[in-house]
């Protein structure tokens, strides 16, 4: 469960020759409930990744707060992290370690004992159908294989809340369908899943709740039907354009 209220974050940027503060996230508030998939939908540069990084406690918000499973991302950083599985938009796995070693490393770092860690790794390898490349070093893996390893790694400490930053990036059709199934299953198991994307069909096909983010603010949120109703449109894409203030 995530309750984000008025999150704000800016960075130093360069405009021409001058240094300038760039507002990456102006004000983001949304809710993501357990057992649901919440999609953070927005164009490139809208602030999706920055929002997820704040939720993952990698960046501290300048304003606002988010409560994840009862813990504040500002004050209970370690507690938030232990309830959170975060998969950044690049898999970021270790190429010289095998699939199994990659997952086990994170399990052990999260304080899981060796025996349990091995059990969970086996479990995840089976669940994400990674048997064929479980003991291969990950250098040279396909994007789909890398994503699976990264996802397994994010799930190994059984977090209640799961943050996925553009998880289907670079995946082919079959891999994307496979991943969707896994994400659906996670929500059905009672997890709170938040994933960011700029692909309309994907969000429409998968999400129970959609938060449209544009220019650092949540411009509209609700279920797919809510959004279509609010914008008087029949397609999510059109609803999206209306929501971010564009012209059809």
């Amino acid at each position: 469960m995530i309750e984000a209220t008025d999150l704000q974050k800016s960075f130093d940027g360069v405009a021409g020759n001058k240094k300038q503060r760039v507002m990456a996230v102006k004000s983001v508030s949304f809710q993501a409930r357990d057992g649901q998939i919440t999609g953070l939908l927005g164009p490139n540069g809208a602030g999706k990744s920055t929002t997820l990084r704040m939720l993952a406690t990698l960046l501290a918000p300048e304003q606002g707060d988010a409560i994840i499973d009862g813990y504040s991302i500002k004050t209970d950083v370690l507690a938030v992290r232990s309830h959170l599985g975060f998969m950044p938009h690049n898999a970021g796995i270790y190429p010289r370690l095998t699939t199994r070693e990659n997952i086990r490393y994170y399990a052990r770092l999260c304080g899981i004992d060796a025996k349990t860690a091995n059990q969970r790794v086996d479990e995840l390898i089976h669940r994400l159908t990674m048997e064929s490349f479980a003991d291969r070093r990950t250098a040279g893996f396909s994007q789909g294989q890398k994503t699976k390893v990264a996802l397994a790694r994010a799930l190994v400490h059984r977090p209640q809340t799961i943050l996925l930053d553009e998880p289907t990036n670079g995946l082919d059709v079959m891999a994307t369908r496979g991943l969707r199934k896994i994400i659906r299953q996670l929500a059905d198991d009672g997890h709170c899943v938040v994933f960011s994307s700029h692909i309309m069909q994907e969000v429409a096909a998968l999400c129970d709740e959609i938060a449209i983010i544009s220019d650092g603010t949540i411009s509209m949120s609700g279920s797919l039907d809510d959004l279509l109703h609010k914008t008087q449109q029949r397609e999510l894409e059109d609803a999206f354009v209306v929501a971010i203030g564009g012209e059809l």
């Binding site: 993952a56 990698l58 959170l84 970021g92 999260c110 990264a150």
Partner: peptide
């Protein structure tokens, strides 16, 4: 790989 690592408890 640093981002996911730093998001660990």
């Amino acid at each position: 790989s640093l981002e996911p690592l730093l998001s660990l408890p």
